[in-house]
């Protein structure tokens, strides 16, 4: 079976800098692959290559077996949910309009969109009666991210991309949303590529972790393997977990 997403010797040059170097990586249907790395290691760049926000300067990224450069970018993107740190909700749309955007672009009938949006809002624990008519500015950071997740799920895409979706939240809300993410994944079992710089988050939600260092793939391992993996960068990340390392 072809992998859902396949990076093949992908390099990316941006502004004269090699941001990604010969990245090769397969993502199988159903897994949650976490791209872990320091900031600047190329995680966002790698993620944006999957939905053709960026194209490789060498190599290719294949989605469902077809290189992103050969896809109709609009069609490709409507099959891929995308959630970013700042949520990127449309400030002039209500929650309902935000979540229903892709179904509307896809020409679903209004009744079907409405039913779908309300079901999704229930699923992310934002009762539609209370939240559907609100504007993003009337929501807390955590609520906004949940709307962002609902919006990404709206047209039932086979693949979801997350770029540090919980990075800007307070620790308590972050843990809540991580739990919700896990519950949601059990429920709907979608494939996800999830970017984070938080090793705890990576160990919690990943089926496999890809550690990026300076634009290269350093380690590719399951969470259990990752804990025992050799290498300086792995150790640097694991040191974040060590209670000895936390100043009193």
């Amino acid at each position: 079976m072809t992998p859902l997403v396949s990076f093949r010797n992908v390099s990316c040059r941006l502004g004269g800098k090699d941001v990604l170097r010969e990245l090769s990586l397969d993502i199988e249907a159903g897994e949650t692959l976490v791209l872990l790395g320091r900031s600047g290691s190329g995680k966002t760049t790698a993620l944006k290559m999957v939905n053709a926000l960026l194209l490789p300067s060498a190599g290719e990224v294949r989605v469902e077996g077809t290189p992103t450069a050969a896809w109709d970018a609009i069609r490709l993107r409507r099959r891929i949910g995308y959630v970013i740190q700042e949520a990127g909700l449309f400030p002039h749309f209500t929650v309902e309009q935000n979540v229903g955007l892709v179904p509307r672009l896809e020409g679903w009938p209004a009744e079907k969109i409405r039913a779908r949006v309300h079901a999704l809002l229930e699923q992310v624990e934002l009762p539609p009666a209370q939240f559907a008519a609100r504007y993003p500015r009337e929501l807390s950071g955590g609520q906004r991210q949940r709307v962002g997740v609902a919006r990404a799920l709206a047209a039932d895409p086979p693949l979801l991309l997350f770029d540090e979706p919980f990075g800007a939240l307070d620790p308590v809300t972050r843990v809540e949303l991580q739990r919700q993410f896990l519950a949601l994944r059990r429920e709907i079992g979608k494939t996800a590529i999830f970017v984070t710089h938080d090793v705890r988050e990576a160990l919690l939600i990943a089926t496999r972790i890809a550690l990026l260092h300076d634009g290269r793939l350093d380690v590719l391992a399951t969470p259990a393997e990752f804990l025992r993996a050799p290498g300086e960068e792995v150790r640097a990340f694991l040191a974040c977990l060590d209670p000895q390392g936390i100043p009193a």
Binding site: L76, R78, Y82, E86, A87, G88, L89, F90, P91
Partner: peptide, 23 residues
Amino acid sequence: VDRAVRESAIAMGMTGRQLLWEV
């Protein structure tokens, strides 16, 4: 227009025209 908003619009699969008129 906020960079994150524009990027989301493109990532949701808006065409150039939809990005202009709707966002």
